[in-house]
Simulated scan of single mutants.
Amino acid sequence: MSAFDTGLFGQKGGYAVRILDLSGGNGADPVETIRGFQTLEHANAFARRYVRDSLERCRSRGMAPADVVAAWFAFGEDAEVMGGAEQAWRSAAELNDFAARPPGDAEERNWRALDPRRDADDADEEEE
């Protein structure tokens, strides 16, 4: 099976990422669903950075990795890639590594640079 068969390089309608409030403040419903990811790679990278940033916002100086994970589950936000099936990134795959290893640079947390809504905002500004 090639990358083209799995949808890594796009599918009709694109991919979406659901943001989930782990504190339960929004119940089981997502806080928001972000649409407009044209490739699974784009959606996966956004979700990964979003979760990384959320976990880092839960980290305090000197916390043990297990405490960082516990704080994230109590106060953080998760991101689910919709439409990627088995190739979709999942936070469970990297959560413990994130907690054990603070990010090396700000790029690992910069989900805003990958946000497809930003592209729409940029296009609106160009039209004005």
Rank of each mutant, 00 (worst) to 15 (best):
F4T: 01
D5Q: 08
T6S: 15
G7Q: 05
L8N: 01
F9H: 06
F9Q: 08
G10F: 01
Q11F: 03
K12N: 10
K12E: 12
Y15V: 02
Y15C: 01
A16V: 03
A16D: 02
R18Q: 04
R18H: 04
I19L: 04
L20F: 09
L20Q: 08
L20G: 05
D21W: 00
D21K: 00
D21R: 02
L22D: 01
L22I: 08
G25N: 01
G25D: 03
N26R: 02
G27T: 09
G27Q: 06
A28K: 09
A28I: 04
D29Q: 07
D29I: 03
P30I: 03
P30F: 06
V31H: 08
V31P: 07
E32R: 09
E32F: 05
E32V: 13
T33G: 05
G36Y: 07
G36S: 11
F37D: 02
F37N: 01
Q38G: 13
T39G: 04
T39A: 01
L40Q: 05
E41W: 06
E41P: 06
H42A: 13
H42Q: 04
A43F: 10
A43L: 11
A43Q: 07
A43E: 05
A45W: 08
F46Q: 02
A47L: 02
R49H: 06
V51Y: 00
R52G: 05
D53R: 15
D53V: 06
S54F: 09
R57Y: 01
R57M: 14
R57E: 14
R59Y: 11
S60M: 15
M63A: 12
M63F: 10
A64V: 12
A66T: 08
A66R: 10
A66W: 07
D67C: 02
D67K: 04
A70Y: 05
A70M: 08
W72S: 08
F75N: 14
E80A: 04
E80G: 03
V81C: 08
G83D: 03
G83V: 03
G83T: 00
G84C: 00
G84T: 00
A85V: 02
E86T: 14
Q87D: 14
R90I: 03
R90Q: 14
S91P: 07
S91V: 12
A93H: 12
A93T: 07
A93R: 12
E94F: 07
L95H: 10
N96W: 13
D97F: 13
D97E: 14
A99Y: 09
R101C: 10
R101Q: 13
P102S: 08
P102R: 06
G104K: 15
D105W: 11
A106I: 15
A106E: 15
A106Q: 11
E107Y: 13
E107C: 13
E107H: 10
E108C: 10
E108K: 07
R109N: 14
W111L: 11
W111F: 15
A113N: 05
D115V: 01
D115L: 12
P116R: 03
R117D: 05
D122K: 11
A123T: 10
D124A: 11
D124F: 09
E126M: 10
E126C: 09
E127C: 07
E127P: 01
